[in-house]
Write a protein that binds this DNA or RNA. Structure first.
Lengths: 128, 128
DNA sequence: ATAAGGTTTCCACTTACTGGAAGGTCAAGG
DNA sequence: CCTTGACCTTCCAGTAAGTGGAAACCTTAT
């Protein structure tokens, strides 16, 4: 598989696949005679894994760690669970923050008449 | 006020205040004879405004726009409300995403025994 | 043979700062 | 008067995770 094919199969932009190769996160299995990156099934699986893990909010470095655990099936699941639980807590914090942001902002927006008058509770709310 | 004072008063890092000056978001009212940035009450108000708007998720460029509206009290509140409503929708989208992320991830974490056994549903869940 | 499209490398740009180095300034204490 | 320490200046570099573009090479089809 060339980079375009593996990019499509993994649902990642070509640029991103190349970037992952550059940073050594998922390296191609080899190069063609003309220098094209060549990927196999196992790299494809890793790329899909990374895409999903990234969408779960794992950082690239965490993906690297996860990929290490993934590759080494002798590792305990404890390490993996630790990472996941940490992520869950971060997500919960982020959601709480967003909730209060949302509440404050919609309160302001609701009290704003949104017409041509210059008075705006959003502006004064932010300023106060 | 020197930069340290205005930074403390606005609850922003000095570096950030300097950065805002560099990008022309909040420029000091002048410079002292020795080249120190000098800030007045009006700049302090703007910095506080920006800090709050940033904490609401407005980008720096949106802050610039907001600051323009803020400065020009003849502007209608429609423009401001438009920005705010847009932000609220983005926040709601983000929260929905986070919610499904959270649900999926906690499902995986809950089914993971988290012991020394190498089998891990999180890993296989991400891989599938 | 040529055109289209895929691939290569390299470099710059993005967001919103943050850290650090080298050096100038200011106020207080000895 | 001198020094010390806190504060200030500019400039350079780096962060995360890519994205965009340019110039040139490769492959495939017509």
């Amino acid at each position: 598989m060339n980079i375009g094919a593996v990019a499509e199969a993994s649902e990642l932009p070509t640029k991103t696949v190349r970037y992952y190769a550059d940073i050594g996160l998922v390296t191609p299995s080899g190069r063609s005679s003309s220098g094209y990156r060549v990927y196999g099934k196992s790299e494809l699986r890793k790329l899909i894994f990374v895409r999903r893990a990234r969408s779960f909010g794992f950082s690239v470095e965490e993906c690297r760690e996860l990929l290490g655990l993934y590759a080494d099936r002798d590792r305990s699941s404890r390490d993996v669970k630790r990472l996941a639980v940490q992520r869950i807590e971060e997500i919960e914090n982020k959601m709480r923050e967003l909730q209060s942001l949302h509440d404050e902002l919609s309160h302001l927006a609701n009290t704003c008449h949104g017409d041509d008058r210059p008075d705006c509770p959003i502006i004064s709310g932010l300023a106060s």
